[in-house]
Each structure stands twice: as C-alpha cells, then as structure tokens.
Design a protein around this nucleic acid. Structure first.
Length: 468
RNA sequence: GGCGACGUAGCCAAGUGGUAAGGCAGAGGACUGCAAAUCCUUUACCCCCGGUUCGAAUCCGGGCGUCGCCUCCA
C-alpha cells in the first residue's frame, strides 16, 4: 500500500513534501499567535483552528506534538490601544489574553505546550539581537537596532521575491536613516512614557519579528519542524524571522513553512483594518462553536474561505445531522442483535472509511475531503439503521464518528442524562395516551415538553428525546 | 508594476489525465396517528478560446474576472 506518510505543502519549496520530523515521533511546531490588543475575529481563528487540527491529527497518528503559540503583548498597536482605553499595556494584554482563552476554549483549541509572551523573554530577545550585531548582521542606529538585510544572502527565499523586486512596487515611505530600505527593526528605542526595557542600545522594546525567532528557539530549539501562520505573515514577518534566525545560527530555522489562506467577507480578506470583521466572541453566542469550527474546516486550509453567517447556519444543520446519527446509534444499540459478526461487508466498509479519513488528512490536511468521508459514513449508517442493525456495526460506526470528530476537534456536548422525575412522568403519560390513541393529549404533552426544550421523537424502538 | 493563488451546481466546497466528493438550501416521493428523525429521487455545457493527448475540470499557451502579499494583519 502507499506509504502512510503525511504530506504537507511547504511555502519554502512551493511543493508538497512528505513530513519527516527531525526527531522521530516528535513534532516541534510554532504557530504565530495573535497580538492581544482587541477582540479576535473569526478570520484570526481560522488559522488557529487549522493548526490545532493538524496537531490533533499528528497526535492521533502517534506523534508527540510540541506546539507553541505566542501572544504578542508589546508593540505599537498595543501601546496605542492601551492609551485609547486608558489602561496600561500589561492590563490590556491580560484582558485580551483572557478573551482569547475563552474563545479558544469554545472552539476546543487545545492548550499549547507553551504560550510565551515577548515581555517575559526580553532577556533572550536582547541577547539574540546582541549576537546579530556582533556578527555584523545588525546595526544600532540612534537607540534602535536594525537588521542588515544585505548581510543575509537568503533574504527573499520564503516569499520568493528579492528586495529589489519588491522595491519596484514599493509605495511605502522609506526611513532614510536606514542603510537599505529593506532593513527592518529589531529593537525600538522607546519614547517618553512608553513601556521599555534596558538594553545595550538604550531603553526600548523588541521589534515584532524578533520575538518569534527568540521564543521559538527558547522552547523548541534551533530548528523547528513546522512554523505556521496565516498567509499574510509570509512577508515580511516570516521572511524576517528566517533572516534573524538563520543569519545567526547558520542552519534552517524551520523545515516546513505552513500558511493558512484568509477568511473572506464579500470577496475581501476579513481584517480589522478593512473594518469587515466579525468578532468570535459575538459569533459564538449566536451559533454553536462546534458548528463554527466545522465551518472553518469545511475548505482546504490553503484555499480562501468565504464567510457569511448563513454558512454557519448550514454548518449547524450539518452538525445536528451528525449528532442525530450518534443519537440513533446510541438509542438503537440496546435493541440491536448481539451478533458479533455484524454485517461483514459494512464493517469492511467502515475500515475503508477510516483509512480514507486518515488519508485525506495525510494529504496536506485536506479537512474538506475528511468531512466528506465522515458524512458518507453518517448517511450509510443511517441507511443501515433504517433496516437492520447489529451491535458490532453500531459500535464500530459510533467509534469511527467519535474518533473522526475528535480529530477535527468537534467536541460534542453530551446531553445531560438526567431528565427529572416530572419530565419522565410526562413522557410516560404521553406514551399511555398514544397507546390509547388519545393523540390530542399526546401532542399536548409533546408541545409542552418542546417548550421546555425537550424534543420527543417516536421511533419503532420507543420514544427518544434530545434537548433542542 | 513585482510575487503568489484562484475561477467547479442556488450557495459553500473536494477532486491535478479516464466523462464530477461532501455539506447547506430547493423540489418530488417513502416511512409516521401527526410530527421529528431517516432514506430514495432530482439540479453541473467544471470562466472563455486555442493546443497536447486515444482521452483534460485536471497538462501547456492566450484572454477575461477575482483575491492575497509587497504597509499592521491569522
């Protein structure tokens, strides 16, 4: 059979490559996290959910995953926003890190191995910059420190464009003090009143790009297996990280660079600066978070995904369909034939589906394809349950669905098992009424319970209920 | 202008050489006391024009259109 290898599209090589970790069985993965100055929107979470799913898949395949995802808690935006809200920068950071945590929990994003913040790693950052200066790769300038792009020959290898090529279309004001327009800031001297830390070049704060280089190295070592983020980070952020890290250390910073495409809204990228954002904290109270996650994984991660609220509604319907299937499986299990063999051909079919599901995710994390496999199993299981069922089949279908959902990070809330005596009594009463063909009473009870959020469904195996 | 992508049913979206996954929505039907759930049926000239090939949504060329990055950005 084809190799079981996982293939990932590497932005660096612009091709899909078999994934081979540096250390067998361990995946060292750094995901660029958010700047915590505002509510995060659904678009931000697309990439976090995607790379969380990748980590879950690796784990399911037996890897140990060291996933680091940072919080940027100091930069110009943080300072400006803190001033706007009249709070300190650390207070601002705490507020939005807490907000992120709530959002992430709702979307079932697993706790990372580490969630570092630059303000807690100033020492490593300053030291990294100092080494770059000593090596001639950076130069101090009036309290700032800049990276000398001309001293790093590989600059442009990730974004596949040299700085000269970029210059042609440059529409940006160039800081005339810099040696070259492409040089970027590593350390930013502070102005009065701004948060600052001591350094050999005077008080200041880290530039944006350096934090990831320094913190990734700190937690994961000199070479990462995977470095991931949104496509909009390819340039300049990740290009600069490569320069900072490889310039200093002299070997590859990350072996696989993964980039998630943007979530779009009316054809344009969802982004704060364009003012077309939907904060996750708003969305998740209107729609089930699991449905939001299902939606975010409904397209392949390198394809732009169109966002509209009605699409989330569609995902809710799809999610309900899966849950109904699981409910049916659970409900029918006690009534099924205790036949150990079950339907042999269907069991084989399920095994095939399991392979197909893994294969889809192995192929550059094709979550859309994986979802298709999952929904096919839902339909086939339903078909089977309509006519016949054996316990072995039910158990296996149930376990396939649960395992697949867990891999995608779709965690289903189990209905509370307790209905309460009163409700139990009403359900029994309705059953009695139905048996005596008193449908008026039966329907009245059903309506009453529905009003209380308990939905009854009559099946050949007896009444079934769910909350809704 | 440079670099990188994309254009598949009403909508979202898989599929990189052998006549098109999946989800949502719509229509019809089966089942049901009625519902609910479920199942079945049903909707695609794969942007356009050339080329390569026995054969292309899939490869090549051209065109049209859209998006991203080049400035903070997941």
């Amino acid at each position: 059979m084809a190799s079981k290898s996982i293939r990932l599209y590497n932005t660096l090589t612009q091709s899909k490559q078999p994934f081979v970790p540096l250390e067998p069985g361990v995946v060292r993965m750094y995901v660029c996290g958010p700047t915590v100055y505002h509510h995060l929107h659904v678009g931000n979470f697309r990439s976090f959910v995607i790379f969380d799913t990748l980590a879950r898949f690796f784990e399911g395949q037996g890897f140990r995953v060291l996933r680091v995802q940072n919080f940027t808690d100091i930069d110009d935006k943080m300072i400006a926003r803190a001033k706007e809200l009249n709070v300190s920068v650390p207070e601002l950071a705490e507020r939005y890190i807490a907000q992120y945590a709530e959002d992430a929990q709702a979307l079932a994003i697993e706790e990372p191995y580490a969630a570092p913040r630059p303000t807690e790693h100033i020492e490593e950052i300053v030291s990294h910059i100092g080494d770059l200066v000593a090596k001639g790769l950076a130069y101090p300038l009036e309290g700032d420190v800049y990276f000398r792009v001309s001293a790093f020959p590989g600059y442009g290898k990730l974004s596949h464009q040299t700085s000269e090529e970029r210059l042609a279309g440059a529409r940006v004001e160039v800081d005339e003090r810099k040696e070259e327009p492409a040089d970027f800031v590593l350390w930013k001297g502070s102005r009065p009143g701004e948060p600052n830390w001591p350094s050999p070049w005077g008080p200041g704060r880290p530039g944006w790009h350096i934090e990831c280089s320094a913190m990734a190295r700190c937690y994961l070592g000199d070479t990462l297996d995977i470095h991931a983020g949104g496509q909009d980070l390819i340039f300049p952020h990740h290009e600069n990280e490569i320069a900072q890290s490889e310039g200093l250390l002299g070997h590859p910073f990350a072996r696989y660079w993964l980039h998630a495409a943007m979530l779009t809204m009316d054809g344009a990228k969802m982004s704060k600066s364009q003012g077309n954002i939907v904060p996750l904290s708003d969305l998740r109270v209107r729609y089930r978070p699991q449905a939001i996650r299902l939606f975010l994984l409904s397209a392949h991660y390198r394809t732009p995904l169109a966002f509209r609220e009605e699409l989330i509604e569609g995902s809710e319907a799809a999610l309900t369909r899966i849950e109904n299937c699981l409910t049916r499986l659970g409900h029918l299990l006690p009534h099924a034939a205790p036949d150990d063999k079950g339907d042999q051909s269907y069991l084989e079919h399920l095994e095939h589906a399991e392979r197909a599901f893994d294969e889809a995710l192995s192929d550059d994390l094709n979550t859309a394809q994986a979802q298709a496999v999952l929904f096919n199993v839902v339909r086939e299981a339903n078909t089977l349950l309509d006519v016949d069922s054996a316990q072995s089949v039910i158990r296996q279908a149930d376990s396939f669905l649960r395992r697949s959902l867990a891999t995608l990070g779709i965690t289903l809330a189990e209905d509370a098992v307790e209905l309460g005596d009163e409700v139990e009594r009403l359900i029994a009463e309705r059953e009695q009424a139905r048996r005596s063909r008193d449908f008026q009473t039966a329907d009245r009870i059903r309506d009453d319970l529905r009003a209380k959020g308990i939905v009854l469904e009559d099946t050949p195996q007896g009444v079934r209920w769910h909350r809704g």
